[in-house]
Amino acid sequence: MLFFSFFKTLVNHEVTVELKNDISIRGTLKSVDQYLNIKLDDITVVDELKYPHLSSVKNVFIRGSVVRYVHLPAAAVDTPLLEDATRREASQASAKAKQG
């Protein structure tokens, strides 16, 4: 759930999504869901001529399972906060494991 929440904080930022079939799509992150399916607006495709089927497309819904990387704007990421959240989630998970 952490990365789902994390991506929610990046809504309306420019990101580049690299897919497992090597297509890179840059656009404004509009939405993300629990599977990390991603919706991008106003897209531009890196190396567009190689992928002519995307040239008349303005916004895309990308299935989470086909994403290889998401390139993020460094300025929009609060790294200490993310580290903190990771530790909190890990400690919660281990506390739960001890209880159960």
Partner: peptide
Amino acid sequence: GENVLLLGEIDLDKDDYVP
């Protein structure tokens, strides 16, 4: 669903444009 990579909404101003 598992066979879908990507859904792209077609910009109707650029409909059927192939570069």
